[in-house]
Design a protein around this nucleic acid. Structure first.
Length: 414
DNA sequence: TCTGGGGTCCTAGGACCC
DNA sequence: TCTGGGGTCCTAGGACCC
């Protein structure tokens, strides 16, 4: 195979930029990008974390993922904007539309990151093309991006993370030593805080120091993940730019409650509200799953989980909920809960599970679920709700990811 | 009113089988 | 009664990503 030229296009402070661009286009005069500002969740609902920050906010030391409470301590006159995911999805899609003019080998890696394979373009002009793309996005869509260019996805992604914003960088093999090896080891994709700590503990502080370790040594120490980061540190990575997303392996929803839940009855209601969403989504995919799991986070932030493998795969809201309830009863130790999650995995396409051949199969359940899905999709999620939620103050369906065709899934694999 | 929500993959340990 | 050992499946927990 001939050598490749991969672009990684990364929107600068995506949610914040999109919010800023949207507001300017709708008549606002201040550009959020020029003041200390963040996009963040609702503190009163205990969703108060920083999702994106402006560069001025960054100068106050505000970090993505930290609590808004602490961000405000760092910068008392911080402007805080609630997130609007639909808006971001649209902005992301217009960017993808523009990129598709340049290659049909495009992978939507996350809502704000795209890989583009330029190997089949004119190899001489890839830099010009990258600058053209960057400028067009700025002019036509109103936000800036970084573009990283490399011989594979890993190096392209590392390159796009160099100096920001509004830049184009390259990182080819011959540039690794100068541009990547001096960086702190946790700048490397897949080296998080835990691994950084381990590596530092054995005197490895830069990506270059990791790269020069003995291959067998790192494997015997950190196993597969160790080998992976060692290869990354050496610029070794060869996954394709995926035109078609990998099949979904699990579907789950979770919620942090606005107060600690200390009783079984309300816990069941949250599990039901989440099961409703998981059920809708799995049916939308026309799949069924065999493994149901729940996970709880206590008021003291301790997490624990439990799972159950069913005899046959299911896509029924009631079946998911019944299993979730049983699992909850097995693990709940009466301590107050702040977060519930419900998940379904080991998925099978409905084409291949002939449930109707089973003896205890009741088609009425399936028809009811499907009918309710249709009504909810047409008239809104709250057009049909279970009566137990009436006057309860608890939302009858909880969870995000509206069943859209190819919503880009973020993940730690290329 | 300090700490979200959506995912994937890997490992370790135990059960169970031959 | 000193105890091998390989394979598979299952489960809980943890690491990482955006």
């Amino acid at each position: 195979m001939k050598h490749r030229i991969i672009f990684h296009i990364d929107v600068n402070s995506a949610y914040l930029s999109w919010e800023a661009a949207y507001r300017l286009q709708h008549g606002e005069s201040t550009d959020l990008r020029n003041i200390p500002s963040i996009v963040g969740g609702d503190e009163s609902k205990r969703h108060g974390i920083v999702l994106a920050k402006s560069i001025p906010a960054k100068k106050y030391g505000i970090l993505t993922g930290e609590s808004i409470y602490s961000a405000k301590q760092k910068c008392p006159n911080l402007t805080i904007i609630p997130p609007n995911y639909e808006r971001y999805m649209k902005a992301s899609s217009s960017m993808v539309d523009l990129l598709e003019e340049y290659s049909s080998y495009i992978q939507r890696y996350s809502i704000d990151e795209v890989f583009l394979d330029y190997s089949y373009g004119n190899e001489q002009n890839f830099l010009d093309i990258a600058y053209e793309i960057k400028e067009r996005i700025k002019k036509e869509l109103g936000f800036t991006v970084n573009i990283g260019i490399g011989p594979n996805k890993l190096l392209a992604k590392m390159a796009s993370d160099f100096k920001k914003p509004d830049r184009v960088h390259t990182l080819f093999h011959y540039e690794i030593e100068d541009k990547m090896w001096p960086l702190p080891v946790d700048k490397l994709f897949m080296v998080g805080s835990k691994t950084k700590k381990k590596l530092n503990g054995r005197g490895v502080f830069t990506i270059g120091e990791l790269a020069k370790l003995d291959r067998e040594y790192i494997y015997s120490w950190l196993k597969k993940p160790g080998l992976l980061i060692w290869e990354y540190a050496n610029g070794i990575e060869n996954s394709p730019v995926r035109n078609i997303p990998l099949p979904v392996k699990s579907v789950g929803n979770s919620t942090t409650t606005s107060y600690d839940v200390d009783n079984r009855k309300e816990s069941y209601m949250f599990l039901l509200a989440l099961s409703e969403m998981v059920g809708m989504r799995i049916r939308d995919l026309e799949q069924s799953g065999r493994v149901i799991s729940i996970s709880l986070k206590s008021h003291q932030f301790h997490s624990y989980s439990h799972q159950k493998k069913l005899d046959i795969p299911t896509d029924s809201t009631n079946a998911i909920y019944k299993t979730a309830k049983k699992l909850f009863d097995k693990i709940w130790n009466e301590e107050p809960i702040r977060r519930f999650s419900v998940n379904i995995s080991e998925l099978y396409s409905n084409e291949f599970c002939q449930l109707s051949l089973l003896e205890d199969y009741d088609p009425r359940e399936e028809i009811l679920d499907k009918t309710i899905d249709k009504i909810r999709n047409r008239y809104g999620y709250n057009s049909v709700i279970r009566s137990c939620f009436l006057y309860s103050g608890i939302k009858p369906i909880i969870g995000g990811v509206v069943a859209e065709e190819d919503y880009p899934m973020m993940s730690s694999i290329f």
